[in-house]
């Protein structure tokens, strides 16, 4: 264990929670929708719901996930640095 590296930093609990929540949303939007695709074949506003969700809805959710994460983490990191309580 000579080189347990400094690459693993202790993170604030809030960062861990944000990441876990976003990953949960990711699982729902990808595997959840794909698993239940056959049951979602209603038509909504002229679109077959399952086709729209898999072809467009999920992709938009993925974009939302990475954007929210980047925005939140960058803000959080800047605040931590400014407060001089960083690890």
């Amino acid at each position: 264990m000579s080189n347990v590296p400094n690459t693993i930093k202790r993170e604030a609990a809030s960062a861990v929670w944000v990441r876990a929540t976003l990953l949960f949303v990711w699982v729902l939007a990808s595997f959840g929708i794909a698993f239940f695709a056959r049951d979602l074949s209603q038509t909504v506003a002229g679109w077959p719901l399952n086709f729209w969700l898999a072809a467009q809805g999920s992709v938009l959710v993925f974009i939302g996930i990475v954007v929210v994460y980047a925005w939140w983490m960058n803000r959080h990191e800047a605040a931590t640095l400014a407060g001089r309580e960083g690890d």
Partner: peptide, 15 residues
Amino acid sequence: AYVLGWTGGFCLVGL
């Protein structure tokens, strides 16, 4: 599956 897989993977990369 290709559309979902090739975009969804970026959540793992980014997070």
